[in-house]
């Protein structure tokens, strides 16, 4: 896969794809999309980079171990953000009754805790895509070298 055109176009496109993914994640409560769709877009951009260049270049940007940590960290962050409401004396994942401030409707920070849930899901889904790809590409080599 030593194609100059593919690499140049990929290098141009990937930042915009990632910016759009972050936009979809952070505006999940205002517009279509949300944590899952935005995380899938961000993960697809990382896979595109690793596929157009090679696995070493992709691993320098986001290595397999960091991707694994982000995957677990996203899930744990979602659960911890849900437990914040329980610490404040409400049910799991309670938003407004637990005291999260709701801003002006239509603004970016107008959803209380849902913003943090979306970001956590975005981390989780995006790094899961990367981890799937790395597991598929590295395959049994990784296990063989670790044994």
């Amino acid at each position: 896969m030593e194609d100059l055109l593919v690499r140049i176009i990929c290098r141009l496109v990937v930042p915009f794809v990632q910016l759009y993914g972050l936009y979809v994640i952070t505006h999940g409560h205002l517009s279509p999309g949300g944590g899952f769709a935005g995380g899938a877009i961000v993960g697809a951009s990382m896979i595109l980079f690793a596929l157009a260049f090679n696995l070493e270049a992709g691993s320098r940007k986001l290595s397999h171990d960091i991707s694994l940590l982000m995957e677990s960290g996203g899930a744990i962050g979602f659960i911890l953000a849900g437990f914040v409401a329980m610490l404040l004396g409400q049910n799991f994942l309670t938003n407004k009754a637990a005291g999260f401030p709701l801003g002006v409707p239509g603004n970016l920070f107008s959803s209380g805790a849902i913003f943090f849930f979306s970001v956590a899901i975005g981390f989780k889904v995006g790094s899961t895509m990367c981890t799937l790809f790395y597991n598929l590409i590295e395959g049994s080599d990784r296990h063989r070298s670790s044994e």
Binding site: P32, G33, M129
Partner: peptide, 26 residues
């Protein structure tokens, strides 16, 4: 259904294609 459309474009046209190409390369 714009929500489903975004997810379909990201997952169906994006990630699934990449994963299939990775599988074919192996």
């Amino acid at each position: 259904a714009p929500d489903i459309a975004i997810t379909e474009a990201a997952l169906g046209a994006g990630v699934t294609t990449f994963l299939f190409i990775a599988t074919i390369s192996k």
